[in-house]
Structures are given as C-alpha cells and as structure tokens.
Amino acid sequence: MNDGPVVLPEPDAGETGPYTHLGFATARPGSEDKVEELILALVAPLRAEEGAIEFHVHRDRADRRQFVIYEMFRSKTALEKHIAQPYTQEFIRAIRPHVEGPLRQQFLRMCSALPGTE
C-alpha cells in the first residue's frame, strides 16, 4: 500500500500458517475522520473475501492521527487477490490525499498456532 506496486515477500519453505499484513498510515491534520471512514469502509467487503481470516482497524490512543490495519489471509495468494480487488485499488487512490508520506507496510509470519488449528 505504498506509492508503487506492492511486492509481497515469499512465505518460508514449508510455511503453512496464515499470511499477515500490517498497514500504517498517518492522517494529515484535519483528515483524521476521513481516514478512519475510508479504512472502516474496507471492513465488510474484506471480511467477505474467501481468503480473509481477520481484518481489524486500530487508531493510536496517544496520537489520533496514527492508524494501523491488521489483516490476516489464508495465503500470500489470497492477499494478492485482495490487493487486486477494485475496491482495494479505489481505497489506495482515495486515501492518498488524506495521509502524510507513504502508507507503510509490514508482512508477518505467524510463529504461534492459529487458534483451532493446533
């Protein structure tokens, strides 16, 4: 979700767990509510995607301009399909004028077992 194409790191050899993404955004002063509105609009369609496991939106308690998106997918392929969705591409375009700097990303490998899979 930065200004260029998203390049997802490959899963580790033998990895069977979910593919997790964290997105970070800093709202421009005065755009905090708009950023929250745009991110929250992703909740229903993303959670309806076949490969989605979890999607949560967080706002920093100390700095209300800071947002964190937590999303977990069944696989890298599922996340790639999500990124290609028209509504995801529209979100990236729509949020751009309301945030400072690039939308930062972090991709995580789950080390603990996913509940229900132990």
Rank of each mutant, 00 (worst) to 15 (best):
N2M: 08
N2H: 15
N2W: 15
N2G: 12
D3V: 12
D3W: 08
D3G: 09
D3K: 10
P5G: 05
P5M: 09
V7F: 14
V7K: 11
P9R: 08
P9I: 00
E10D: 08
E10K: 15
P11I: 07
P11S: 12
G14R: 08
G14S: 05
E15I: 06
T16G: 11
T16W: 06
T16P: 08
P18W: 07
P18R: 12
Y19S: 03
H21T: 08
H21E: 02
G23K: 01
T26C: 14
A27V: 14
A27S: 02
A27M: 13
A27I: 10
E32Q: 11
K34E: 09
V35K: 09
E37W: 06
E37G: 04
E37L: 03
L38H: 05
I39D: 04
I39R: 01
L40C: 12
L40R: 12
A41W: 02
A41Q: 12
L42F: 02
P45Y: 04
P45I: 13
L46N: 09
A48P: 09
A48I: 15
E50A: 10
G51K: 11
A52M: 13
I53R: 08
I53V: 11
E54C: 10
E54W: 07
E54P: 08
H56Y: 15
D60T: 05
R61F: 10
R61P: 10
R61Q: 13
A62Q: 14
D63T: 02
D63M: 09
D63I: 07
R64P: 14
R65Y: 10
R65E: 11
F67K: 10
I69M: 06
E71G: 15
F73H: 08
T77M: 06
L79M: 07
L79S: 01
L79E: 07
K81E: 15
K81C: 09
H82P: 08
H82I: 02
I83W: 09
I83P: 00
I83G: 02
Y87R: 07
T88C: 13
Q89E: 05
E90L: 13
F91A: 04
I92D: 06
R93N: 04
H98F: 05
V99Q: 05
V99I: 09
G101F: 09
L103P: 01
L103E: 05
R104S: 12
R104K: 15
R104P: 00
Q105T: 13
L108F: 09
L108V: 00
R109L: 08
C111M: 12
S112R: 03
A113V: 09
G116Q: 03
G116E: 09
G116W: 03
G116Y: 00
T117D: 06
T117L: 08
T117P: 01
